[in-house]
Write a protein that binds this DNA or RNA. Sequence first.
DNA 1: GCTCGGTAGCGCCCCCTGCTGGA
DNA 2: TCCAGCAGGGGGCGCTACCGAGC
Length: 400
Amino acid sequence: MAGTEISVPPEQFTKSKEPELITEKALEEEEEGVCRARAHPSSEELEAESTHGALQAKIPGGELELLLAIREEGEKHILTLQTVHLTSEDAELQDLAPQRQEEVQAGSGLQSWVWRGDGSQQSPHPCVTISIQEEVYLLQEVEVMQLHVLEEKVTGASEGSRCAVSLAESCGSIKLMKGQEEEQLLAEGGSSEETEGQFSLLEVRPGDEGRVEIVLTISPLNIEKPALGQAHAEEANATESQKKTKEVKRTFHCDICTFTSSRISSLNRHMKTHTNEKPYTCHLCLKAFRTVTILRNHINTHTGTRPYKCDDCDMAFVTSGERARHRRYKHTHEKPFKCSMCAYASVEASKLKRHIRSHTGERPFQCHLCSYAGKDAYKVKRHMRTHSEATSKRARQEIP
DNA sequence: GCTCGGTAGCGCCCCCTGCTGGA
DNA sequence: TCCAGCAGGGGGCGCTACCGAGC
């Protein structure tokens, strides 16, 4: 299938951003036999996705739910569901005879997806076949539709577990649901391709009754999954044999994002980034900060204390990062950010980003008084002088 | 747990240069 | 022709935020 591509109206899909696949209500729902991950990506985040060429998936009118089977016990997976252009060869894939078929309805707006699996286990990876109603997902040219499902290790999944992923357009939510059904056997036959070593995928083909079938190959990953309900630790990549043997390296997970660390102190520090708590207040300006380090740097900006002195000149800086950047600008001339379209290279990523706008013509900063748009914020600010000065000139002319 | 070093990102300001229109 | 105004492109720094790792 690699190579087969179907086309889906981009607006019909919302690509889930991997770090967003974290749940808010996962804990209580897990107790109900449902593992549910919900994310609320902001519009900015979705925008960012699109800028990377990834597809945006929006499900018109409601949620999209994807059922899939997890075969291995104690494994975690990242699933990427990707639509691809369909070719005539895909008809051959109809030979994949699913043994099971289920339809899922989740709410009024939900488009039905059909999970299918067969008993063949020839593939090293489990596969899932999903059918989508054709009126929802058109067999045209697709680029988009990428779903990342970060699945928790499935313990006690002897009966198997099913996961349902749903995208709700209205709120941008993604749900990960673990069902209680019996073990779903997995289909074999969809070609797979590794992407960044993370996932494999899948096959898209026309199904019956006007559906599109997507065969999803699941690659087991050694990725720790966020705990449900609270930050937790677990043994990284621990198999039973490994557990029995030796040195258990613990990995601590944030349950709000995909952050992991080998140190609990790092996790504890990280967890503060998910709160608005800023307990460290500058006594000079009353501005609050999350960490004492940031506060210290801030106070140095008041006092003029610049502890980081450049070895090659008389410049000094508040932070080591400023000094390092200064050294790249002035002394080492190291420019790690290189433009792929010309010879331009920059010390800073933001400069490269600004430079690329000169290639693309993008002008994201709009003047609110005229049609002028600038490629960076300061250009608009500078441009605004022309309005104020023009106004003042007129005023001077009108008032002799 | 604290601290340091490094990285990332946004913002601000400045300089240099080319174009354009009016004096 | 000269010059001021304006915009494009880019350099450099200020500051905040975050994280890995050493102590």
